[in-house]
């Protein structure tokens, strides 16, 4: 799993040397920024169900056709799965905030997502809408401190760009 520490260790190991001062400085820099992203991860974990519901509701109000027969949300089971997927993306963003890198999103969310959605004939626009709504809905200081909000939004943007 890619993070600052594993990147530094991999590079040191490839060169067969002990962690250098540069390596320790790189880890130190990562640690200094950690407070904000851990705060974002904690708040997101606390509000995950609410955020998921709001984002899902926003999708179905923007694209009401999704609930028509033959569409991705034609019955309650399928609607529930849409909410589950949104929660899944938010959980991966929570993990990415913890790790301090996009590793979890890349490995468990984005890799292969396009192929899966095409095969299942799911609209990626709906997921983009859910994540965009979440990004625009989150605000500081109501939800998070400014720096934590910044970290949260950067991972949302990363997921949005990957699905767009």
């Amino acid at each position: 799993m890619k993070s600052v520490v594993t990147t530094v260790v991999t590079a040191a190991d490839a060169a067969g040397r002990f962690p250098s001062q540069n390596d320790l400085e790189a880890v130190q820099g990562n640690i200094q920024r950690a407070a904000a992203r851990l705060e974002a991860a904690e708040k997101l974990a606390q509000g995950l169900d609410k955020v998921t519901k709001e984002a899902g509701d926003a999708v179905f109000s923007k694209y009401p056709y999704l609930k028509q027969a033959g569409e991705a949300g034609e019955n309650q089971t399928k609607v529930d799965k849409c909410y589950r997927d949104i929660a899944h993306y938010l959980r991966l963003i929570n993990y990415s905030l913890v790790v301090g890198g996009t590793g979890p999103l890349d490995e468990w969310g984005i890799a292969g997502a396009r192929e899966v959605y095409r095969t299942l004939r799911l609209p990626t626009a709906a997921y983009v809408e859910a994540l965009t709504f979440t990004r625009d809905r989150a605000c500081s200081p109501r939800d998070l401190s400014p720096q934590a909000l910044n970290e949260f939004k950067s991972y949302l943007d990363y997921a949005i760009n990957a699905l767009s």
Binding site: M1, S3, V5, T6, V9, T10, A41, E42, L44, A45, Q46, L48, L90, R91, N94, Y95, V98, V99, G100, G103, P104, W108
Partner: peptide, 20 residues
Amino acid sequence: MLDAFSRAVVSADAKTAPIG
């Protein structure tokens, strides 16, 4: 290879729970 952070992520993913 894992570090303290990604270890927490891998064990949380096994439970499909967010980290809090």
